[in-house]
């Protein structure tokens, strides 16, 4: 008999890679390696796009943060920019109102804490319930936070925002690595989580929550845990975005459109895979800021949303899982 369940005496290292990475063939390993190498060497082959790639790295963090909860469990958040925006505004408000020279080792943890607190306000009332409650709360949450920014305009700068945040660096190459490295580290952690028991349980919750509850798994606890990981990720990304732009306005970091961009990136890249949304972020940001600009400032958005619709209807799994399985079948993959 030859199925993958007869594997007595399998070497530990092999078992570990199989547990966490599946069984990629040599072409898949090669393409993943090439992609990683390409990202690490962008300054040498695409120097003029460094700013765009750096921005895409931050958006990759956001998309992964969305994906670990919404992409895995199918509890769709329409308000994740409230978490990242809340973190960005925490950095901004501290610098703007308390002390312009406040060190990052103070503002950064506080910003992440803000994302967690906002996240818990969303999650605790809604995640114990199935159904659309979570989506409604997240949607309302981001609208409320945006409104609060206007109401407390004397502290937040209102529509014009806060410009006092220090930028990371003016050297584009450094800027790129400052965003890429944290993104890859977060990505590595979340890929391991996604490929572990936890990720499988979260995806099973997305497919059939009642069934997985009857296996003895406390689904509410797992959802809250996933959301906490998501909030921390959004907090890191949000604080980074504040320093990336050096200014914070509702429309660049907070409004609901930013949340929907995160959804779009995860959909294009491949929901529930973590690695997919990373790639999706680069595809989306490059389309938005470089390619689709030929349609004009409004037309590019129309084109983008139509592309996302195309994916939802015709390629639900997203582009990267599709490519991955195509490459997987090059060597005459097993039975798929």
């Amino acid at each position: 008999m030859s199925n993958e369940y007869d594997r007595s005496g399998e070497p530990v290292v092999q078992r570990f890679t199989r547990e966490f990475l599946g069984e990629p063939n040599r072409y898949q390993i090669a393409s993943a390696g090439v992609a990683l190498l390409a990202l690490l060497t962008v300054p040498f082959w695409a120097g003029q796009y460094l700013y765009v790639f750096a921005l895409a790295s931050i958006w990759a963090i956001f998309a992964m943060g969305w994906d670990i909860i919404s992409g895995h469990t199918n509890y769709i958040s329409f308000g994740h920019s409230a978490l990242s925006g809340g973190a960005a505004y925490t950095t901004g408000v501290l610098v703007h109102n308390v002390n312009p020279d406040m060190a990052m080792y103070i503002t950064f943890p506080l910003s992440i804490l803000a994302a967690i607190v906002i996240g818990l306000l969303f999650a605790v009332p809604t995640l114990r319930l199935e159904g659309p409650y979570f989506s409604l709360i997240t949607l309302l949450g981001v609208l409320v936070l945006t409104q609060l920014v206007y109401i407390y305009g004397e502290y937040t700068g209102g529509e014009l925002g806060i410009t006092a945040v220090s930028t990371l660096t003016y050297n584009l190459t450094n800027l790129y690595y400052y965003t890429l490295i944290p993104m890859l580290l977060i990505g590595a952690v979340l890929v391991v989580v996604s490929q572990s028991n936890i990720g499988r349980i979260l995806r099973a919750i997305g497919e059939n929550e009642a069934a997985i509850e009857s296996s003895g798994i406390d689904t509410t606890r797992f959802k809250l845990w996933a959301f906490l990981m998501s909030a921390i990720t959004m907090g890191i990304g949000g604080a980074m975005l504040a320093h990336f732009y050096g200014n914070i306005t509702p429309s660049t970091v907070l409004v609901v459109d930013r949340s929907l961009e995160m959804v779009a990136i995860a959909v294009i890249g491949g929901m529930g895979t973590i690695a997919g949304p990373i790639g999706g972020a680069f595809v989306f940001i490059i389309l938005r800021d470089e390619v689709l600009t030929v349609f004009g400032s409004t037309g590019r958005w129309l084109a983008l949303w139509l592309i996302v619709l195309f994916f939802l209807v015709f390629l639900r799994d997203g582009i990267f899982p599709f490519i991955w399985s195509r490459i997987g079948s090059i060597g005459g993959g097993r039975d798929e």
Binding site: E4, Y5, S196, N197, R200, A204, S215, G216
Partner: peptide, 18 residues
């Protein structure tokens, strides 16, 4: 899936292949 421990930190628990 039905053998996984109810533990949010367990990355690889559950029944063996055998």
């Amino acid at each position: 899936l039905f053998t996984y421990p109810n533990d949010i930190f367990s990355l690889t628990g559950g029944a063996s292949q055998a």
